[in-house]
């Protein structure tokens, strides 16, 4: 069982992690500062496996990879949104954080909802109502990167030309 952390549209990288916390590459330190101003309770209350469900344009703003790292290191298993800002989406894939676009409305999903999430099937089920939310599959080459654990482990084992074969 996982908990939903619900966010609205246009969650920007300064809300995910303000610039002054980006002076480290230590993922545990970044995880402690995640959403520190927007949702001060998040970092201490989030449990491994929880998911973020958000509206349009999640992760807009800066190119800072710290934002994706902080979310992953906090234990979040996937970010599911109506849409993503392009650099955040790329960053998440590159560090092996699942980022999935919803195929259907999520207006009935609320903060604190208890759900069962399956990365394999790309869907989650709201326990109270048994409603299922399905996500759109990522392009195959990005799934390869996520399966490898990110762009770094992928390139350790493969040549870049194998990415788009």
């Amino acid at each position: 069982m996982a908990r939903v952390w619900r966010f609205e549209d246009d969650v920007n990288t300064d809300l995910i992690i303000p610039a002054r916390y980006n002076q480290t590459t230590d993922s545990r330190e970044l995880a402690q500062a995640v959403f520190c101003e927007a949702r001060p309770e998040f970092a201490s209350a989030v449990q491994p496996g929880d998911i973020i469900v958000a509206g349009e344009n999640f992760g807009c703003g800066s190119s800072r990879e710290h934002a994706a790292i902080a979310i992953k290191a906090a234990g979040v298993s996937a970010v599911i949104a109506k849409s993503f800002a392009r650099i955040f989406h790329r960053n998440a894939v590159n560090i092996g954080l699942a980022v999935l676009e919803c195929a259907e409305p999520i207006d009935h999903i609320f903060d604190g909802d208890e759900v069962e999430f399956s990365l394999e099937r790309g869907e989650f089920r709201k326990l109270s109502t048994s409603e299922v939310v399905v996500t759109l599959p990522l392009p195959e080459f990005l799934q390869k990167v996520i399966r490898a654990g990110g762009i770094v482990p992928f390139l350790r084992e493969h040549d870049v030309s194998e990415l788009i074969a």
Binding site: S63, E65, R90, N91, N94, V152, L155
Partner: peptide, 18 residues
């Protein structure tokens, strides 16, 4: 194009990007 750091570190090796 704005990119995240890991992909830039990767491009130092590959000289390319998708």
């Amino acid at each position: 194009l704005g990119f995240g750091s890991s992909e830039i570190g990767a491009s130092w090796v590959t000289g390319k990007t998708w």
